[in-house]
Design a protein around this nucleic acid. Structure first.
Lengths: 191, 191
DNA sequence: GGGAATTGCGCAATTT
DNA sequence: AAAATTGCGCAATTCC
């Protein structure tokens, strides 16, 4: 029986199955095909409806945890962690997104020899490049925005300083002339 | 003979070898090992000293060019393009950085079986992850900064509006009382 | 010179 | 279903 990921060498972690669960263990589940996983899931009466959010595990904390039993599962949005599936994704591989739900709807990947496969790869590679260019552009624009806002801020601050100074001067002049106006002033300002 | 990259399917471009060159053609060079490339280079009496900058080609323009002979080689900083090595990098692969120089000083990569190789890969993979985490963190901080600056900006603008209003009121009051102060005012403000 | 840090790229799992 | 994202590893390059 395998005890570590054949590719990365990261050791598998022993996880406790959910109580009274008919669900397979982490390792068992992980070595199933998508189809097998899916049927196991429905067999267990467990399903994810659209919009539901499930908790995921923090892979790093599992891998780095001195005690293998402490696998800090983050709190879920709607459903408390009740199934080992929620930590299945702790296996080395794609890390789930922030609140990545586990949706047992993986599609079978096309066979590696097929023309379909090649087509898909080519298209995906184009999409990946596009997406990354976009992200890069966004990053640059965000930094540009910071510069613009900083400049604008400085200018506003300068104007503010100037106005404050003017106002103080005017007020002191009022005092010199006579403090008879503050009442009127407040009245006017309140409009 | 191969006419396209086996992986990406991007067609290879026919390039003209440098005049009187003992250098191999693009395709020949591209299929050499690093070591073979290096010896070919020194064999041709071509070398890059520290600090020299060489021109590189614009891969996109080559690939997208309707005419395969127009491979827009960017102008070099110190050395005009005189060798096909400068466009060797037009092959699908790592795109040279902005002014990416071509330095024929590639180190021989450790053999794939070696323990040294594995060590290197492991270390590099760690470094890559670290670097990407850092970049991601930076991006988030930049966006956070935009938020902060925007908020600050709004607040400053509000203050500014208020002060402006106050100032206008005070000034109109002055006018009501008598226009004798503007002179003094300017005098005071000029300090 | 040499190891760590970057970066373009492709793969495949996932999300949208 | 197709396109967009995203974690990850490789290898070339750059940085220090």
């Amino acid at each position: 029986e395998k005890t570590a990921d054949p590719v990365t060498g990261v050791p598998f972690i022993e996880l406790q199955p959910a109580q009274d669960s008919v669900l397979p263990t982490f390792k068992e589940f992980d070595f199933m095909t998508n189809q097998e996983q899916t049927s196991k899931i429905s067999e267990a009466g467990w399903s994810a409806s659209e919009g539901e959010e499930y908790s995921t595990c923090d892979i790093e904390s599992i891998v780095n945890s001195p005690s293998q039993s402490e696998h800090d599962v983050t709190s879920s949005t709607l459903t408390p962690p009740t199934s080992p599936f929620e930590i299945v994704r702790g296996r080395p591989g794609r890390k789930p997104s922030a609140a990545g739900p586990l949706r047992p709807n993986r599609k079978k990947q096309p066979p590696k020899g097929t023309e379909e496969y090649v087509d898909k790869r080519v298209r995906n590679n184009l999409a990946v490049r596009k997406s990354r260019d976009k992200a890069k552009k966004k990053q640059q624009e965000t930094e540009q925005r910071v510069h613009e806002l900083s400049t604008e801020n400085e200018n506003l601050q300068k104007k503010l300083d100037l106005l404050t100074k003017e106002l103080n001067v005017l007020k002191s002049l009022f005092i010199n002339v006579g403090a008879s106006l503050p009442t009127k002033f407040d009245e006017i300002m309140s409009r």
